[in-house]
Design a protein around this nucleic acid. Sequence first.
DNA 1: TCCTTAATTTAGAATTATTCTAATTCCACA
DNA 2: TGTGGAATTAGAATAATTCTAAATTAAGGA
Lengths: 135, 135
Amino acid sequence: MKTGDRDQGGARTLTPQREAVFQVIRESEDHLTAAEIFESARRRLPSISYATVYNSLKFLKDSGLISEISFGNGSSRYDRETERHDHAICTRCGRMVDFDLTETGGLLRAAVRKTRFKPESLHLTLRGVCPDCRE
Amino acid sequence: MKTGDRDQGGARTLTPQREAVFQVIRESEDHLTAAEIFESARRRLPSISYATVYNSLKFLKDSGLISEISFGNGSSRYDRETERHDHAICTRCGRMVDFDLTETGGLLRAAVRKTRFKPESLHLTLRGVCPDCRE
DNA sequence: TCCTTAATTTAGAATTATTCTAATTCCACA
DNA sequence: TGTGGAATTAGAATAATTCTAAATTAAGGA
């Protein structure tokens, strides 16, 4: 690239592989694991490799198009929702549901007061039993 | 075991190995990983194996003597604090600090209202830069 | 005391999730 | 046309954790 920072053909391109990964995440209600994404992406693009899925996930995350969430139990999951939000996790079936607690300003201030951290994000996790699992 | 449920010699014993693991966690300010715990426990009990550390951690967790915390980035950590509390994670150095937001009753109710989950726990995570890392 | 039994520990193999490596392909542009 | 950087690929490597099978331990009963 000579002078400007137009970036076609060079870095930052949304290649077919990256787009396939993006579509998979975008079209799913759930929070998929890398393995699930690989499976679905492969249906669109049979030659896609595992490494490319991971590369694409990193690319999409850095571009702010998706977000990554992970709690201890196992593997990271990927979320089409990139705005601040919270998660509820069912301790029976493992399902993860998005929700949003809007009145978090005061919470954040309280957390900062106690920790003296320069805040970047605040995130709530509710663990419990989802409506489906209590029959 | 004939009739009663006295359980010496059978299940649930605090063996020397389990006790060593417990002491390591109890005496640390930080939230240690399994690898760190293995290293320290080995100093007390040179013959202890990795699997026993994991078994002991599970035993101690089930007994409510320690708690496990884990966020995406890498391995689980173990905490001597078992009461409800929250965590702040430094995005520069990775340090994890405990704090406690006391006014969580209303929060929990709001989260339950939105998700319809039968709640078991609510946990906050603050990400940001710790006091040490901003010089 | 000796035997039986169940719990526990051990070492190492297996598994799972993720990252790394090196070779290959792709494509804009000189 | 050919050069170079970016991206993709397959498979190896790594890291964390779990599993397996054999050995050890300790209590309680014959």
